[in-house]
Deep mutational scan, measured.
Amino acid sequence: MQRVNMIMAESPGLITICLLGYLLSAECTVFLDHENANKILNRPKRYNSGKLEEFVQGNLERECMEEKCSFEEAREVFENTERTTEFWKQYVDGDQCESNPCLNGGSCKDDINSYECWCPFGFEGKNCELDVTCNIKNGRCEQFCKNSADNKVVCSCTEGYRLAENQKSCEPAVPFPCGRVSVSQTSKLTRAETVFPDVDYVNSTEAETILDNITQSTQSFNDFTRVVGGEDAKPGQFPWQVVLNGKVDAFCGGSIVNEKWIVTAAHCVETGVKITVVAGEHNIEETEHTEQKRNVIRIIPHHNYNAAINKYNHDIALLELDEPLVLNSYVTPICIADKEYTNIFLKFGSGYVSGWGRVFHKGRSALVLQYLRVPLVDRATCLRSTKFTIYNNMFCAGFHEGGRDSCQGDSGGPHVTEVEGTSFLTGIISWGEECAMKGKYGIYTKVSRYVNWIKEKTKLT
C-alpha cells in the first residue's frame, strides 16, 4: 500500500490518463441519441435557420407576430419608411378606419389613436360632414345658397324668414311668412316636400332668348283662358290664391305678392273693366268669414305684352289694390325667389296649380277651390304637342294621358313649387288646347323671366 501511494504521488498524470480511459469505455446513459432527441424537440425550422439574422431580410411573422416588435424591426421587413409607417399605425392600436367614419364618399386613412378623412370636392370637416359648395344638395341650405369668396357655403332665406341657429334652416321672422300653410287642420295635408338634388348652379339658368321682337298675326285659340281631375282644397291650404270678379264672377285667378299687390295673367284683364279681388276665398257660393274683398285701382301688364300681336306672350300683369290686405292664416303671400332659384325650383319637376275653373272641358265651374299636382314636361315634348308657338318664356306641365289639367277660369292662378315646406311661385296658368285632352298640356308663363320686374313694381313704400 505504501508503494502504491508513492507511485500516485510521483505520477499524477498517469492516474488522470487511467481515469479518462475508464470513462470513455463506459456506456453513456444520461444523453439520448440524435434521433430520439429530435422526437422530443420537434420544432419547425425557421426561415433563416442556421444563418445569422443580421444578414437576412426581415420576416413579418418572425419579427412582429411571434413577439412584439419595434418600429426598427418592422422597418427591416418593409425596407421602406412609408410602408412601415402605414403598417405601424394599425399594428400599434388597430384600424381606426374600420367603422368607416368618413361621410359623403370620403376616404379614410388610419393613424395612431386617430384617423384622417380625405374629402371629395365640396366637403370638409373631420368626417367630411361639412358642405362647402352650393353645387351639392344646395349646400344643405333649406332655401338659398351662395358661395363666399373663400368658396364656403353661405345660406340665406327669402323675405319674412331668418336663418336658424344651425345656419342652414329657415324659420319665420314674421307672423305670416310667405308660402307657408298655417291653418292647423290643413298642415297635415301639406304636399310632399321637395329635397334639393345635386345641381350645376353655374349652368342652372337656361341660355334662352326671349323672342321679344317676333311679330306674329293673332292666333285663334280655343278655350285658351284655361282644375280638371283635381281635388277639393281645404280652407287655408292655398292662402296665396285669390279669385278675380268682373263682368262675371271667378273669371280668373291670381296670387298675393304682398298686402297691396296681386300677380295674374295679362290676358285676364281689360282696361276700363272694374275688377274686384277676393282673398281668403274657399267656396265661392258661401260666406265663410275668411274672405277679404278689395278693388283694383291700377293694372300693370308687362311692358312687352301686346294682345294685338299675341294674347299669351309675356302673359303676366300686376294688380294694385285700393287697401292693403290683412295677412292671416287664410290670406298669405306666395314666396318669389330670384331668377336663378325660381328656375331651379321649376326644374324640380312638379308643381301645384289651383283655381275655381271648370271641372271638365266646357263644363261647370268649381264651387270649392280645386288643386292638382302636375309634372313638368320637357321642352321637346311640349313643342311636338301643339302647332302653336311655345315661346321661351312659357313652359308645359300636365299629363300625356289627359284627364287632369287646369281649365277655363283658372287662368292667372299660381303654379307653385314647394321647397322644404315653403311654396314659391314658378308659373302662372296661361293657356292650353281644350282641357285635359290626351297628348295636350297646360301652358304656363315662366315666372323666372319676370321676377325682377315683379319685385321692382310691387315694392311697398
Rank of each mutant, 00 (worst) to 15 (best):
P101K: 05
L14I: 13
Y201T: 15
G357T: 15
N452M: 06
C119H: 02
G403D: 15
C119Y: 02
F348V: 15
I256Q: 00
E286W: 08
I344M: 15
T194N: 07
E286R: 10
I262W: 01
A397G: 07
K168P: 02
K234S: 13
N42Q: 11
L318F: 00
T271G: 11
T158Q: 13
I316A: 02
I136S: 14
G363I: 06
S217N: 10
L369C: 04
N213P: 10
R384K: 15
V242K: 00
R298W: 03
F221H: 12
L383T: 15
I214F: 09
A37D: 01
R449E: 15
R226P: 08
N295D: 10
T158V: 14
K293T: 11
F224Y: 15
A308Y: 10
V374L: 05
E340K: 06
V202L: 13
K39N: 08
G403I: 15
R140W: 12
K39T: 09
R373W: 04
C102S: 02
D198G: 13
D338V: 04
P235N: 05
P239E: 00
T225C: 05
G236E: 04
T81S: 09
I214A: 13
V447P: 03
E67H: 01
E116M: 12
F121S: 14
R140L: 14
P239T: 02
K311A: 08
E340Q: 11
V326I: 11
H361L: 11
I256S: 00
N100M: 08
T29C: 13
K247F: 08
G236H: 09
D212S: 09
S148P: 08
N127L: 11
R373S: 10
K68Y: 05
T386E: 07
N283H: 10
S25T: 12
S169C: 04
V374C: 03
A192N: 15
N36M: 11
S423G: 09
G363S: 12
E72Q: 07
S107Y: 07
V326F: 07
A149N: 13
I17H: 04
F121T: 14
N38R: 11
C128D: 03
N147S: 09
S406C: 08
E323V: 13
L130K: 12
E420V: 10
K260Y: 08
K387R: 12
G106M: 03
G125I: 02
V154E: 08
E35D: 14
R3D: 10
G363E: 12
C28Q: 05
N222V: 09
P301R: 11
G439K: 08
S385K: 13
L327D: 01
D150V: 09
L346F: 05
G355C: 08
V183R: 10
V195H: 12
D338W: 04
K39H: 11
N104W: 04
T29D: 14
R75V: 07
S169W: 06
T276E: 13
F78M: 08
K362S: 11
N36H: 12
F345D: 01
P172Y: 05
A317P: 01
D110S: 13
A149F: 12
S423K: 10
S114P: 05
A436K: 12
E323T: 13
E27Y: 11
N5V: 15
E165A: 07
S329V: 05
V269M: 07
Q57T: 01
R384W: 04
K168G: 05
V30W: 14
V4H: 12
V269G: 04
T422M: 04
V181E: 07
I275E: 01
D198K: 08
T190L: 07
G349K: 07
V227Q: 10
R384V: 07
H361C: 05
N5Q: 12
R294D: 01
I256P: 01
L52I: 05
R180Q: 07
N151G: 11
A250K: 07
R83M: 08
T218K: 10
G125N: 03
G412H: 05
Q57H: 02
T381N: 15
K387H: 15
N113P: 07
